[in-house]
Structures are given as C-alpha cells and as structure tokens.
Amino acid sequence: MTKSTATGPGPGPARRFPFLRRVSDARRAAALAGAAVLAGTAAVCAPGVAYSAPRAAASPVPATDFRDCPPLPGGVDPGRWRCEVHTAATVLTMGKVTVRFAPITMTHAEGPMPDGGNGQVWGAMHSTPATVPGVRGLAIQPEYGGRSDAYTGTFSLRFRLLDPLLAPGCTIGATAPVDFRMKRSGPSTWVSQDPPLIEFSAYDDTFTAPAAEHCGPLTPLVNHRLGLPAAGGNLMTYDASYTFKTYDQLSRIPTR
C-alpha cells in the first residue's frame, strides 16, 4: 500500500468540491479528514515507475515461471495443450485519471477439446499497486474479474483502490467487473522461436468505467475526484509479450 506524503490539508475541500456541503454531518467530518489525500495534486510515484501520457513502449519480457499453469480438462492430449505466460505493460485512462501499471503477468492454458472445439482454462494473474497521479496517497491495483477468453481478446478486471482512509473493499467494478474487448494495434511479432517469444500490442477504447463502491464515507468524493462513472473517453493500451510450453514439456503436469 502506498503511504500518503501529504503535509497539510491545503485549500478547503468544500471550496474544491461543492457537493461536500450536501454531505451529512458525520460523512462530512470523515470527508474533511481525508481531503488532503484525495484532493492533493502531487503524485507519489513508486520507485522506478514514471507516470506520463500514454506512449508506445517496448513489450516487457514475459515471466518464465510456469508454476501457475492450471490443471487440464479431462481427456485432452497434453502434447496439444500449451500453458501461456503473458506479461503486459498497461496504461489505463479511466474517468479523469491515467495510470501506468507495472507489468501484469497472466497465465492460462489452451488447446483442443476431445470434441474438437477450442478449450481454455484460467491460471492466475499477478499485479502490483500503482499510485494515481494527482491524487496523493491513493493507489490502484488491477485484479482478475472472473472472465477471460484468450481466443477473442476479452477479459474482465476489477480495480481495488488502496488508501488508509478508504474502506478495505473500495473497488471500481465491485458489483460487475470492467469488461475489456481488446483490438490488435498491428500484427504479432515472433521475437524468438526457441524459446518461443511473441510480442503484440492491443487497445480498447470502448469500455465503460463504473463508479467505485464500498469505499466508506469518502465514496462520493472518490468518484468525483476520479470522474466516475465514465461511459466514454476511456482507454486501455496494452504492450505485451508471451511465451509458452506444451504440457508434455512441463516438469510436472498440474492435477486437480
């Protein structure tokens, strides 16, 4: 969790956010206590992470740890199923903010089912919190939203908001996750055949960003500051690379 470095409350929150005058006395007291964090203008950047406008970036080298490879469905051929480890450098514009995440790693398996159809099994996702530029002390962490289709480029995420003044369950997409339908920015590139390494870029500018939920008394202020919900003007860019092994190449085939 990113700690706040705010040193004072700055200009009054009621002057910055007029809607606070309409908050009940109890909620207004809590909002005033958190104004220095949520209304700040200086970003707290994690070491080695720079935040700026989205730009083209080299695809990150994927992790080569296959420990998250999921168990295979029954009756399939391990030699025809592959476990893919996928690493993406992601920039997210949602509402009023743009966040550059540290590389996100996802693992899944795919291959033919006994009936000839395409099969896939989700493995795991790993991410780290990123500070929100312009909002002191606030960090956001992407989490798997429960839906993924590697064949069509669709998946869902939730975004947990982290700050000591917010309730632990404060999340964008808590009730229904944010659904992404990624479109390729160009063709995939084989960087290496052995080991296999493929790079590609994709984006989605059509998704809807829901409001944050379960943040406690500061929920209205959080959503006002982040510009949520936002039906349009959102963008995710995605510079990725992945590697894979067929299951017969793994040192151990996971079992259920």
Score class of each variant (00 low, 15 high):
residue 184 R to E: 09
residue 207 F to K: 00
residue 5 T to Q: 15
residue 163 D to Y: 05
residue 233 G to T: 05
residue 21 R to H: 14
residue 79 G to N: 05
residue 77 D to N: 13
residue 40 G to Q: 01
residue 179 D to E: 15
residue 138 L to Y: 03
residue 164 P to N: 06
residue 218 L to D: 00
residue 47 P to S: 05
residue 36 A to Y: 04
residue 85 V to Y: 00
residue 124 A to R: 10
residue 49 V to E: 12
residue 145 G to P: 01
residue 126 H to V: 13
residue 123 G to F: 02
residue 175 T to D: 12
residue 66 F to Q: 05
residue 117 G to E: 13
residue 138 L to N: 06
residue 71 P to W: 05
residue 126 H to D: 12
residue 209 A to T: 06
residue 253 I to F: 03
residue 140 I to E: 05
residue 139 A to V: 08
residue 231 A to C: 05
residue 239 D to S: 14
residue 6 A to S: 14
residue 167 A to Y: 07
residue 203 Y to W: 08
residue 239 D to C: 06
residue 140 I to C: 09
residue 34 G to W: 03
residue 136 R to K: 14
residue 226 L to F: 11
residue 194 D to S: 14
residue 132 V to D: 00
residue 253 I to A: 02
residue 207 F to N: 01
residue 125 M to I: 09
residue 106 M to V: 11
residue 16 R to G: 04
residue 125 M to C: 03
residue 40 G to M: 02
residue 203 Y to S: 11
residue 202 A to Y: 04
residue 71 P to G: 05
residue 229 P to F: 04
residue 139 A to I: 03
residue 80 R to E: 15
residue 147 R to D: 15
residue 147 R to W: 11
residue 113 M to A: 09
residue 108 H to R: 12
residue 216 G to L: 04
residue 188 S to E: 15
residue 31 A to C: 07
residue 129 P to V: 08
residue 221 L to E: 04
residue 15 R to V: 13
residue 161 L to R: 02
residue 156 S to I: 04
residue 29 A to N: 09
residue 140 I to A: 10
residue 252 R to M: 12
residue 4 S to M: 09
residue 28 R to G: 09
residue 226 L to V: 05
residue 171 T to W: 05
residue 207 F to A: 03
residue 249 Q to R: 14
residue 148 S to P: 01
residue 251 S to V: 11
residue 145 G to C: 05
residue 12 G to M: 14
residue 142 P to L: 02
residue 202 A to G: 10
residue 214 H to N: 13
residue 20 L to P: 01
residue 77 D to W: 02
residue 106 M to N: 10
residue 226 L to S: 03
residue 206 T to C: 06
residue 7 T to H: 11
residue 236 M to N: 07
residue 243 T to D: 03
residue 158 R to S: 08
